Simulated scan of single mutants.
Amino acid sequence: MQEDGNFFKDYYHRYKTVVGQKENDSDSLVFTSDIGEWVEVSKKEYQNYYNYLGMVLASKSASGKVQNDKYPPGYQYVGNQRYGNWRTDSHGNSFWEWYGKYAMMSTVFGMFNRPVYRNDWNSYNDFRRRGEPYYGNGSFYGSRGTMYGTSGNVTQKTKPNFYQRRAVRQSARNASFSNKVKNRVRRSNMSGVRSRSSSRGGK
């Protein structure tokens, strides 16, 4: 996501598309990804999707059904025994491990920062059943807030450019506001000086 301009803003989205195609005659899929060009969108559309940076916005099943659930990329394939299985780490936590030939799915979906634990996956399914966006539970893993989406801890690490641009815009707005306050105070002081001078001159 990107905003341009100060007074008259333009809003842009850029989408990553991941396509799964059947491998030979099997039901397994081979995934490819593509990042498109920046596309100008309306302010309303920009605001509607503002919270979902880095998340799935829409997906299509093998039957062609389109779903608009919002969740971290790749979660829809976790738990599918065609692509991997559940393992247990040294602390007794159950996590998802892709089979060797599908290990690249972590890169395609941007899941290389951490494994998907069964607690993640269970929560994801609960949220989808309720028709709610799933942002991940950062507090479960020792961090505050959500993990994914625009306010997510993981997103801030994997998409630093967005937050750098936002910080620059915020700094510019703060500077503009500060200058306006200073100008108003200066004009007010000058008005007071003129008023006192006028009063003295009239005596």
Rank of each mutant, 00 (worst) to 15 (best):
Y124P: 14
K44R: 13
N6T: 08
R194G: 10
K182H: 10
V56I: 06
Y135W: 13
F162I: 02
Q2M: 09
A103D: 13
G36H: 00
S197E: 12
K70A: 09
M111E: 03
N113R: 13
V168Y: 05
R129K: 11
R118S: 15
E132M: 14
R114F: 09
G136S: 07
Y99G: 13
S59L: 13
N174D: 09
Y135Q: 13
R196D: 09
G131C: 02
E45R: 12
W98F: 14
W38D: 05
G149H: 00
D10G: 09
G142V: 10
Y75D: 12
E97A: 08
K9S: 02
S199I: 14
V56Y: 00
D69S: 12
G92F: 03
R130G: 05
R129W: 03
Q67L: 08
H91F: 12
M190K: 15
Y124N: 04
D34T: 15
V154G: 03
E97R: 15
Y15H: 09
D89P: 01
E3I: 15
Y71L: 04
S198Y: 10
Q156R: 15
G5K: 04
E40I: 09
V66F: 03
Q2A: 08
V18H: 02
N137V: 09
S143A: 07
D25F: 11
H91R: 10
N68G: 10
G64M: 01
K101Q: 08
T17F: 02
V108H: 03
S26V: 02
A175R: 15
Y11C: 14
A172N: 09
F95V: 02
D126M: 08
N153A: 12
N125V: 07
G36Y: 00
D4W: 05
R169M: 11
D34V: 15
V19M: 10
G79C: 00
R194I: 11
G79K: 00
G152I: 00
